[in-house]
């Protein structure tokens, strides 16, 4: 793809991602330990900083 392929106003479908508990916790272990702590306490998981593997 080149510059010319990125026209203003063009809408592109870029796939989808699925979140699993395991993938959220795996990311959290590396980059956001607050999520791990919340999960251990059985509390709500913070709403940001979650990611997952592409499906």
């Amino acid at each position: 793809m080149f510059y010319e392929d990125m026209r203003v106003g063009r809408v592109m479908q870029l796939g989808s991602m699925a979140f699993t508990r395991d993938s959220i916790l795996a990311y959290a272990a590396r980059f956001d330990p607050r999520i791990l702590a919340a999960a251990r306490e059985g509390g709500p998981v913070p709403p940001r900083d979650c990611t997952s593997r592409a499906r």
């Binding site: 590396r30 980059f31 956001d32 330990p33 607050r34 702590a37 913070p46 709403p47 940001r48 900083d49």
Partner: peptide
């Protein structure tokens, strides 16, 4: 960016009384 967030957690975010993280 993820490493920044991790260093923030270790330095202060894990102890902060966060109400909302707007982005």
């Amino acid at each position: 960016s993820a490493l920044l967030h991790r260093m923030n957690c270790d330095a202060f975010l894990a102890r902060a009384m966060v109400v909302r993280e707007p982005g």
